[in-house]
Design a binder for these strands. Sequence first.
DNA 1: TTATTTACTTGCGTTTTGCAATTGAAATGG
DNA 2: CCATTTCAATTGCAAAACGCAAGTAAATAA
Lengths: 138, 138
Amino acid sequence: MSDLKLENRCPIDYALEVFGDRWTLIVLRDLMLSGKRHYRELMTSKEGIATNILASRLKKMEADGLVIRKHKPEDKRQVFYELTDKALDLVPVLLEISRWSVIYDKHTAAPPELMRRYQEEPQQLIADLQEAARVRQT
Amino acid sequence: MSDLKLENRCPIDYALEVFGDRWTLIVLRDLMLSGKRHYRELMTSKEGIATNILASRLKKMEADGLVIRKHKPEDKRQVFYELTDKALDLVPVLLEISRWSVIYDKHTAAPPELMRRYQEEPQQLIADLQEAARVRQT
DNA sequence: TTATTTACTTGCGTTTTGCAATTGAAATGG
DNA sequence: CCATTTCAATTGCAAAACGCAAGTAAATAA
């Protein structure tokens, strides 16, 4: 309904539809690289996401197959968001973006050790970050 | 003035400020991979960018050091946008995003030959695309 | 000298965002 | 138990961004 040209879509265009807004990538970063899993944790990012925006983005991310919304059995109030393979496969994109930012932002706060590892053994770092994210959510 | 926390900025956050909106990445794609250089060419993207939005984005991209606005000597009406190294260094990001989209969008329109080359000799492909873009704008 | 092309700008209605207050369900404390 | 707190949102509203159509200025073409 919302998209009239489902066939032959440019890959950049598809990516923009899924995570091409100010907040989705911030949420993905926090889930994938900062180990956050709960709504209240995602609220604490220093970029200051508004609660209604966070809720709407998480809903869209679930619809797009990036996260799975689950309740904690021992406390049914609490919800945690599990990353799918589709989301975890964005780790290389996040790292490549970071590489670029480190070069061009003189005030960058990227962890030097992380970027050094990305330069020296990118494949291993990617696998490690994905594995770490997977372990967290079980 | 606009950014109060210039120091210690997350690399993802910096990237979002520079090209984290629906249209900047579309314009960069057209300039870098489709060989467009003129305003009128950028207007023809099938995503349908509005003329005022394109103008405002080009202005911001110039302010952010991604493009340089130049007049054609032989026709002073015409303007062309030259990519800086800062922009050309986003080629790996565009390719990595494309790699992801090709996997997860079943209606992808990515050129298969391009993606095959990216898999087999990524560094050479990146260099070739950057060189091709550089040659176009002189 | 009139028409056309090019690269925008302006005006305006619609949509999205940001902020604050509120809600409802579930757990916790007294 | 019953009141309070926690958690994950939702709602209402003002402000900003966006999308569309029309208009403008400078340069070239006819």
